[in-house]
Computed example of a mutant assay.
Amino acid sequence: MRSTVLYIVTVLIWGSTWLAIEFQLGVVAPEVSLVYRFSIAALLMWGYCLIKKLPMKFCRKNHLFFMVLACCNFGFNYLILYWAQNYLTSAMTSIAFSTLLVMNIINTRIFFGKPIAPRIFIGAILGLAGIVALFWQDVKSLDFASEAIIGLSLSLAGTFVASLGNMTSVRNTKNNIGIMQGNAWGMLYGSLFLLIFTLFNGSEFNVDTRLPYIVSLLYLSLFGTVIAFACYFVLLKDIGPEKASYSVVLFPVVAVTLSMIFEGFVWQTSTVIGFVLVLTGNVIVLTPIDKIKAFFDVEKVVEQN
C-alpha cells in the first residue's frame, strides 16, 4: 500500500514538473532559477531534519557521495534538462527522460553487479526506435545542429547524469544513510555548486516577479524537489531502482496530457509511433517473462470458459 501511494505521488508530481519548468525559462537564467529552487528545498529539508532531530553528522567519505548526489540529482542534471527545454516542449523532454529506466538497469549492472535480463535488450531497442520516431523529422535530415536534436542530446545527457545520482542514492541507502539526511546534505551541496557555477558563469541574479514564475518556483522547490525526491528515494530503498523506475513509464503520460492543454502540443504520426514504442519498451523492460506467460495463460483459460 505504501509503495502504491508513493508511486502515485511521484508520478503526478514529476509528471507535472516538466510543465512547471517552462514557466522558469525566459527572464531568469536557468542556473539562477536552480540556485533559488535548491536553496529553498535545502532550507525545507534541513528544517525538517532539525525538527525531527535526525542525526546529521557523517564521515568524510559519505560527504563525498553527498556531493556526487548533489551534482547528479540536485544540480547539473536539472541544469542540462532546463537547457533542453529551451529547445523542446515539456512533453518531448519528458518522453526522452523516460529512458532513465534502461539507464538505471544498465548502471545497476555496472555498479552493483545485477544481471541484465534478455528482455531488457528488446525493450531498449524499442525505446531507441521510439526516440528516433519522435524526432524523425530531424533525424532523417541528419541536421545535428537543429534545435530538436540539440534538445534531445541535452535531455539524454541530463537523464544519464540523473541515473548516476540514482545509483549514488542506492549506495547511500546500502550504507545506512537516512533518505532525509542524505537529501538534505545533497540539496545543500547542490545549491552551493550551482551558486559557484553561476558566479563563474557571470549570470545575473535577477527575479521574475510575475506570478507564474513565483508559483512554479515554489511548486518545484517543495513538491518537485523535497516531496517527490523523498518519495522516489524511499521507493529505491524499498523495491530497488529497477522496480522504482515503473514510475518513469507514467511520467510522459501526465506530461503529454498537460502539454496538450497548456502548450498546444500537437500529435503527428511519427510522434504517436514514437510515444507508443517508448512506453512499450519500458513496459517490456519492467515486466518479467513469468508474468507475461501467466497473463497469456489466464487469457487462454478465459477463452476456454
Rank of each mutant, 00 (worst) to 15 (best):
F97W: 07
F66M: 02
R60E: 09
S141Q: 15
L195R: 09
F205S: 14
H63M: 08
V28R: 05
T280W: 01
F200A: 12
G178K: 10
A148M: 10
V285L: 04
R119H: 03
T209M: 09
F295T: 06
A145Q: 13
F262S: 11
S90A: 08
V254I: 07
K300T: 08
A157H: 04
K52M: 11
S39Y: 01
A29E: 07
S90E: 06
A184L: 15
I214M: 09
V215Q: 08
F23Y: 14
A157C: 13
L222H: 11
G264S: 06
A228I: 11
L279A: 04
N62D: 13
P288E: 02
F295M: 08
I110E: 03
L277E: 01
S259L: 11
V234S: 02
W46M: 04
Q85E: 05
G165F: 00
S39I: 05
D138W: 03
L19A: 09
F65R: 12
L142R: 15
I284P: 00
V248T: 08
P30A: 00
Y189R: 14
S247I: 08
A244Y: 02
V139H: 07
S169R: 15
I239Y: 12
G165H: 00
L211I: 15
W46F: 05
L81I: 05
L50M: 10
F111T: 10
P288D: 00
A70M: 01
F205D: 12
I125A: 07
I8V: 05
K114C: 05
I227F: 09
Y246H: 06
G158S: 03
C49H: 00
L250I: 04
Y87V: 01
D238Y: 12
I149V: 09
A162Y: 12
I273P: 03
A42I: 13
L81C: 03
S94V: 04
I13K: 07
L25P: 09
K243C: 08
K174D: 11
N201G: 11
V249M: 04
K61L: 10
L25I: 07
G123Q: 01
F97Q: 08
I13E: 08
P241A: 06
S259A: 13
L100R: 13
V226D: 14
L199R: 14
Q268W: 06
L101E: 00
N206L: 12
G165W: 01
G75N: 09
I292Y: 00
S169A: 15
V234C: 02
K293V: 07
F38C: 00
V285A: 03
I196H: 12
G47R: 01
